[in-house]
Amino acid sequence: MKLPKPILLSIVGATALTAACGETPAEQQADTMDDQIEMEADRSAVAAGTDEAALGMTEAQLLDADLVTADGTDLGDVALVRRDDNGTVTGLVIELEDTHPDRWVEIPMDGLTLRGNATDGDVQTSMSAADLAALPDADMSAVNNTTM
């Protein structure tokens, strides 16, 4: 997919700005990936519309949610919603809290619940920060292919 020129220029500009701020190449790459993920998430949420995606939430509401433990400890942010060929939500890509450079993992929907309400709730898991850290990195090749 070819990006409109203003979006492409903003990615290039953001990458140049982070380079000027003394970030390592790994941090620069993570920042670029973060920008690509946000664009893909926005595109996907618009395409999904206001239909319920999972846990009583729309895709946009899921993308605004944090992943938290039962006691409310923030484990990360929902970055992407993964769907199968039928459009059913199968998992969430989570940007893990306090990782430098940024790191994303994919978790299945099994065992996830809504904490709070759909309008401003979070996604609750029984996984710990250590459990999430032990997961492999999420496959982000689809994001790279759709946004570049």
Rank of each mutant, 00 (worst) to 15 (best):
E59H: 11
A60I: 08
V68Q: 13
V89R: 09
D34N: 14
V93Q: 03
A70T: 14
A79T: 04
L92Y: 13
P25N: 10
H100K: 11
I94Q: 05
A79D: 11
D102F: 00
R43P: 02
L80T: 07
T99V: 04
I107D: 09
A26R: 08
M109N: 09
V78Q: 13
D71M: 09
T88N: 05
H100Y: 13
R82F: 05
E52N: 07
M39V: 12
E97D: 15
A45Y: 08
I107C: 06
R43I: 05
P101D: 06
T99H: 04
H100W: 12
V93I: 02
A70K: 15
S44E: 14
A45H: 06
D31N: 05
T88F: 03
I107P: 02
E38H: 04
T58K: 03
L92V: 13
L63A: 12
G22I: 07
M33A: 02
I37G: 09
T24N: 06
I107Q: 05
G76M: 11
V89C: 13
D51M: 13
E106R: 04
W104Q: 00
A79W: 05
D77F: 09
L62Q: 15
I94H: 03
R103C: 00
A53L: 11
D64R: 15
C21D: 15
A79P: 03
G49Y: 09
E23V: 06
A79I: 06
A53F: 14
L75A: 11
M57N: 12
C21Y: 13
N86H: 07
V46F: 08
D84A: 10
H100N: 15
T73H: 13
G91T: 02
V46Q: 13
T90F: 07
C21L: 15
D34E: 15
I107A: 06
L96P: 00
D98E: 05
G72A: 12
G22K: 06
D35H: 03
G87F: 14
T24S: 08
T73V: 15
M109Y: 11
A45E: 11
A47F: 10
Q36E: 12
D102Q: 00
E97M: 14
V46A: 14
T88M: 08
D35L: 03
A30S: 03
D66W: 14
V81K: 03
D102T: 01
V89I: 12
L80P: 05
V81I: 07
W104S: 00
P25A: 14
G72E: 14
G49R: 08
G49P: 05
L96M: 01
L96T: 00
D64K: 15
V78I: 15
D42R: 06
D74T: 11
E38W: 03
V78Y: 11
A53C: 11
D77M: 10
A48N: 00
L92D: 13
V89T: 13
A26M: 09
T32G: 05
V81W: 05
D51V: 12
Q29L: 06
D42I: 04
Q28K: 14
V93A: 03
L63G: 09
C21R: 15
E106C: 08
D77K: 15
A30W: 01
D35V: 01
V89G: 11
M33C: 02
G91Q: 07
V93W: 00
Q29S: 05
L55Q: 10
V105K: 01
T32Q: 11
